[in-house]
Measured scan of single mutants.
Amino acid sequence: VFVDDHLLEKVLELNAKGEKRLIKTWSRRSTIVPEMVGHTIAVYNGKQHVPVYITENMVGHKLGEFAP
């Protein structure tokens, strides 16, 4: 499973602090992992960042699938 390192670091850091804030990313190719559930990730679609709230059903899919 591929997840960009910088994105995973941000998610794990927020989980350690117990925070839930918006994470901006250009990494549409990253796979959604269970650690991301409950976070809102702003995924770049080529024009703007689209906020995507991550749920359990999204695990295993790519971030780009949810930012048309």
Rank of each mutant, 00 (worst) to 15 (best):
A42V: 05
V11P: 01
Y53D: 11
I23N: 02
L14Y: 05
N57P: 11
G60V: 02
S27L: 04
I41L: 06
T40E: 08
R21G: 12
G60E: 06
M58R: 06
E56W: 12
H39A: 02
L12S: 06
T40H: 08
H39R: 02
G18R: 08
H49T: 04
S27T: 04
G38K: 05
K10R: 08
I23W: 01
V37F: 11
L7I: 05
L63M: 07
V11L: 06
S27C: 15
L7H: 01
K20R: 11
T31E: 07
V33I: 15
L14V: 03
L63F: 08
N15I: 07
G46K: 09
V37L: 13
H6E: 14
V37M: 14
N45L: 07
I23Y: 01
M58N: 06
H61Y: 12
A16P: 01
G64N: 06
A67C: 09
K10E: 15
M58T: 06
D4S: 04
I54M: 07
V37N: 06
Q48R: 11
S30N: 02
H61L: 14
I41R: 00
G60H: 10
M36H: 02
T31D: 08
G64A: 11
S30E: 02
E65P: 04
T40N: 09
I32F: 01
V33R: 04
T31F: 10
G64L: 07
M58Y: 10
T31V: 12
N57F: 06
D4M: 00
K62P: 11
L14A: 10
P34E: 11
H39E: 01
I54W: 00
T40R: 08
L63A: 02
G64I: 05
V52P: 00
R29A: 14
K17T: 12
N57A: 13
H6S: 13
L8R: 04
K24R: 13
K17I: 11
E9G: 12
D5L: 15
P34C: 15
G18W: 03
L14S: 06
R28E: 04
E65A: 11
M58W: 03
A67S: 14
P68V: 10
T31I: 08
F2Q: 05
V3H: 03
S30G: 02
D5M: 15
A67L: 05
Q48V: 14
P51L: 11
E35P: 14
T40Q: 14
V59C: 14
F66M: 07
V33K: 04
L7Q: 01
K17A: 09
V43P: 06
V37T: 12
K47D: 09
A42R: 03
T40L: 13
A42N: 04
G46P: 02
K20S: 05
K20V: 07
N57H: 11
F2Y: 11
R28G: 05
V1S: 15
P34Y: 12
P68M: 08
E9A: 14
M58L: 13
E13S: 06
K20P: 02
E13R: 07
K17L: 13
E65Q: 12
K10G: 05
T31L: 05
V37Q: 08
G60K: 06
L63H: 00
I23G: 01
A16D: 06
I41G: 00
L22Q: 08
T55A: 13
G18V: 03
K47M: 12
A16C: 13
K10N: 13
Q48T: 13
A42W: 03
Y44T: 10
E56R: 13
A67W: 03
N57K: 10
Y53T: 09
F2C: 15
E35K: 04
T55R: 12
H39D: 01
I54S: 00
D4V: 01
T40G: 05
R29L: 14
A67Q: 04
R21H: 12
Q48I: 09
Y53Q: 14
V43F: 02
T31C: 15
E65Y: 12
I54Q: 00
E13D: 11
E35F: 08
E65R: 12
H6G: 13
I23P: 01
F2N: 08
V1N: 15
A16K: 11
D5S: 15
K17F: 06
F2G: 09
E65L: 11
K62F: 08
L7A: 01
H49D: 05
V50F: 10
K62R: 13
H49Q: 05
N15A: 05
K47V: 12
P68T: 11
K47W: 09
E13F: 06
V52W: 03
V1I: 14
H39Q: 03
E65K: 13
H61A: 11
H61R: 14
V59P: 06
K10M: 15
Q48C: 15
E9H: 11
I23E: 02
V50C: 14
K20I: 07
K10I: 15
M36Q: 01
R28S: 05
L12H: 11
A16Q: 11
T55E: 13
L8H: 03
E56G: 14
G64K: 08
A42Q: 04
G46Q: 08
E19A: 09
V1D: 15
L63Q: 00
P51H: 05
N15P: 01
M36F: 09
H49F: 13
T40M: 10
N57Y: 11
E9N: 15
T40W: 10
A16Y: 07
I32W: 00
K10H: 14
H49P: 05
I41C: 03
L12I: 12
D4A: 03
E13Y: 06
R29N: 09
V37S: 06
M58H: 13
A67F: 05
G64M: 09
N57Q: 10
G60M: 15
E9S: 15
L7T: 02
M58C: 06
W26S: 13
K47S: 12
H39S: 02
V50E: 14
K47G: 10
V52R: 04
E56Q: 10
R29I: 15
K24N: 08
I32K: 00
S30Q: 02
H49V: 03
V43T: 07
V43S: 01
P51E: 11
F2M: 08
K47I: 11
E56K: 09
D4W: 01
A42C: 05
E56V: 12
S30I: 02
G18H: 07
L12F: 06
N45E: 09
N45R: 09
N15R: 03
H61T: 09
E56I: 12
I54F: 01
I41F: 06
N57G: 10
V37C: 14
K10V: 14
T55H: 14
E35L: 13
G64P: 00
F2R: 05
V11G: 00
P51M: 07
E9Q: 14
A16N: 10
G18Q: 08
K20F: 07
E65V: 09
K24F: 15
N15K: 03
F66G: 02
K24M: 10
A67K: 02
G38C: 06
V3E: 06
W26T: 13
A67H: 04
H49S: 05
N57C: 14
P51A: 12
V11F: 03
A42E: 07
F66P: 01
V37A: 09
E35C: 14
A67E: 03
V11R: 00
P68A: 10
E56F: 12
G18I: 03
F2H: 13
V50R: 07
R29K: 14
N45Q: 08
T25W: 03
K24G: 02
E9M: 15
G46Y: 12
R28A: 05
